[in-house]
Amino acid sequence: MNIFRPTGDPSHPAAIVILLLKIWKTRSCAGISGKSQLLFALVFTTRYLGLFTSFISLYNTSMKLIYIACSYATVYLIYMKFKATYDGNHDTFRVEFLVVPVGGVSFLVNHDFSPLEILWTFSIYLESVAILPQLFMISKTGETETITNHYLFFLCLSRALYLVNWIWRFYFEGFFDLIAVVAGGVQTILYCDFFYLHLTKVLKGKKLSLPA
C-alpha cells in the first residue's frame, strides 16, 4: 500500500467527523444538506457489503466500519437529534434524479454483472455526485455557516490523494480501475465547483457581514 492510501483514506471520515463535531458543538445542522449526507450513507452501505463476503485486512475492515458509522451518525444528528435546526426548505434537490440514472448506469457499465458488483458500481457512481444536493443548497442560500473550511479541505484532500494513489498504482502495480478513476474524476470536478462556490459565495458573504 502506498503512502497516499493511509493519508487519503482517513480524509473523508475526518471531514465527516469535523462536520459531526460542528453540529454537536453548535447544536445545529443549519446549512448542511441532509440529502447529501443521506446519499453518502447509502454510498458506504452499498459499497461495503463485501464486508460480509471477503476479508482484505484488519485496516480495510475497520476503515469501512468507520466510514459507515460516521455517515450514519451524521444522518442521525440531522434527521433525528437536531431535526428542528435542519433547513429542509432549502434542501430541495430531487435525489431521485441522481439515484435513478446512477442505478441505471451501474446496471449497464460494470466490471461484473452480479448483485454485489452492481451495488459496488452504484456506490462508486453515486459517490461522485452525492455532493450535488449540498452544492445546490449553497448556490441557493449562499450561506454555509456550518460547512467549515476544514470539512471542505478534508474532502478535497481525500480526492486529491486518491487521484495520486491511482496514478501510483497504475505505474507501480499495474492496477487500473477505470470505473473508480472516471467516477473519481467527475467527483473531483464537482468538488472544484464546491470550492469555487465556497470562495465566491460563502467567504464573500462572511466578509460582508463582518462588523465595520
Binding site: H111, E117, F175
Partner: peptide, 10 residues
C-alpha cells in the same frame, strides 16, 4: 485473481 474485483480501496 482479478485485481479489480477485490475492491481493496475505500
Amino acid at each position: 485473481k482479478n485485481a479489480v474485483l477485490t475492491h481493496d480501496e475505500l
